[in-house]
Computed example of a mutant assay.
Amino acid sequence: MVEETKKKYSRDYLTWTDEMDKVLLDVFVEHHNRGDQGQNGWKPHVYTAAIKAIRDKCGLHVTKENMSRMKTFDKHYATISKILSQSGFGWDWVNNKLLMDSDDVWNKYVQANPKAACYKNKEVKNWEAICTIYSKDHPTGEGAMTGAETEAQPPEPDVVAIKDSSKMPQKRQRTCDAILCMLGDMKCSFQDALKSLEPLELPKVTPPLEILAALEKIPELARSDMLRAYGKLILSERLFHALMELPMDFRKEWLLTLNEKNNI
């Protein structure tokens, strides 16, 4: 009886490697981009795809229960994104860890947020993929945790238990809304900047030949008066439009008045 009880609650352990993490996140990024994440969490086929990818690419058999690894990434995002929102912090894309202006900046932050202390030199790989999948706004539905509650919990270790799903109750899935992460925001900002650099449409300019042809149509307009008016109209699109709005029998008198007024 004792042996049977021990067997029932025995568990093996799975160690997550960098390769497995990348394969797992690649699958979730792909399905995130397809819109397979909604208010009720990830669609079931996403977990199936992740399990198959790890089996095919890493040669390991995992179950849906092992997908709790995604909670670790969620906690990383909740903590690190909060830090990056503060002045004096950045992200080192080469070494996969936080950058800070000074130890004083870090010490002041940790004093107010002691649970983040372990992240000072912590290496978090695949940050770009994590940013794509998660957002700073955490769900509020049943079983969900706030950002503060998530941050307060320590990150799960890289070793997780493989449980017999037939004997253990299923864990409730957290809900999550897929919105633009910081990289998406950067992309939109870059596109907006490009739009601001697009050349403005130039105003229409009437060709000189068209102006000359219009003047030649005015009855009894002397050659000297025509040349004076031409010199004025090619410099002002507004004056030419004003001329063309007048009836034909008004145009000569108006041009002569314009010439006299400007002493041309």
Results as ranks from 00 to 15, higher is better:
residue 121 N to R: 02
residue 95 N to I: 13
residue 99 L to Y: 11
residue 137 D to S: 06
residue 149 E to W: 06
residue 87 S to G: 09
residue 144 A to E: 12
residue 89 F to R: 01
residue 136 K to Y: 03
residue 89 F to E: 04
residue 89 F to D: 01
residue 103 D to R: 03
residue 114 P to S: 08
residue 124 V to A: 01
residue 143 G to C: 06
residue 144 A to W: 03
residue 121 N to F: 06
residue 100 M to R: 00
residue 139 P to T: 08
residue 86 Q to Y: 12
residue 126 N to K: 13
residue 122 K to E: 07
residue 112 A to K: 04
residue 149 E to I: 08
residue 95 N to F: 06
residue 130 I to R: 01
residue 121 N to G: 11
residue 135 S to N: 09
residue 131 C to I: 04
residue 138 H to E: 09
residue 143 G to W: 01
residue 88 G to K: 05
residue 107 N to G: 05
residue 142 E to Y: 06
residue 130 I to H: 00
residue 138 H to L: 05
residue 137 D to G: 02
residue 125 K to V: 12
residue 147 G to Q: 14
residue 109 Y to W: 11
residue 131 C to F: 05
residue 112 A to M: 07
residue 99 L to W: 10
residue 92 D to F: 02
residue 142 E to H: 10
residue 94 V to W: 08
residue 128 E to M: 15
residue 115 K to F: 12
residue 92 D to M: 02
residue 101 D to T: 15
residue 125 K to A: 10
residue 149 E to P: 00
residue 122 K to S: 08
residue 144 A to T: 08
residue 102 S to E: 11
residue 140 T to D: 10
residue 118 C to Q: 07
residue 96 N to V: 13
residue 105 V to D: 06
residue 104 D to I: 11
residue 113 N to Y: 00
residue 143 G to P: 03
residue 106 W to N: 02
residue 99 L to Q: 12
residue 145 M to K: 07
residue 87 S to F: 11
residue 148 A to H: 01
residue 129 A to G: 03
residue 136 K to Q: 14
residue 149 E to D: 14
residue 136 K to C: 07
residue 128 E to F: 11
residue 94 V to G: 07
residue 110 V to F: 04
residue 90 G to Q: 14
residue 96 N to L: 10
residue 112 A to Y: 05
residue 132 T to F: 11
residue 95 N to E: 11
residue 105 V to A: 13
residue 144 A to P: 00
residue 147 G to I: 05
residue 149 E to Q: 15
residue 105 V to E: 06
residue 92 D to V: 03
residue 92 D to C: 02
residue 119 Y to A: 02
residue 96 N to F: 11
residue 99 L to S: 09
residue 119 Y to V: 03
residue 136 K to F: 10
residue 92 D to R: 02
residue 110 V to N: 10
residue 135 S to R: 03
residue 149 E to A: 09
residue 89 F to P: 02
residue 128 E to N: 14
residue 100 M to H: 05
residue 118 C to R: 04
residue 97 K to C: 13
residue 104 D to W: 09
residue 121 N to V: 02
residue 124 V to P: 00
residue 134 Y to L: 02
residue 136 K to L: 07
residue 128 E to G: 13
residue 144 A to H: 12
residue 120 K to I: 01
residue 132 T to L: 12
residue 107 N to W: 09
residue 146 T to W: 07
residue 95 N to C: 08
residue 141 G to A: 11
residue 86 Q to V: 12
residue 90 G to Y: 09
residue 112 A to R: 10
residue 148 A to Q: 13
residue 104 D to S: 09
residue 134 Y to A: 01
residue 142 E to F: 01
residue 149 E to F: 09
residue 122 K to I: 07
residue 95 N to G: 12
residue 140 T to V: 10
residue 130 I to V: 14
residue 108 K to M: 10
residue 125 K to F: 13
residue 113 N to S: 14
residue 149 E to C: 01
residue 96 N to T: 13
residue 104 D to Q: 14
residue 144 A to K: 05
residue 93 W to Q: 14
residue 117 A to V: 07
residue 126 N to H: 15
residue 98 L to W: 01
residue 143 G to F: 00
residue 93 W to I: 09
residue 100 M to W: 03
residue 94 V to N: 15
residue 104 D to K: 06
residue 135 S to T: 00
residue 113 N to D: 02
residue 86 Q to R: 14
residue 121 N to L: 09
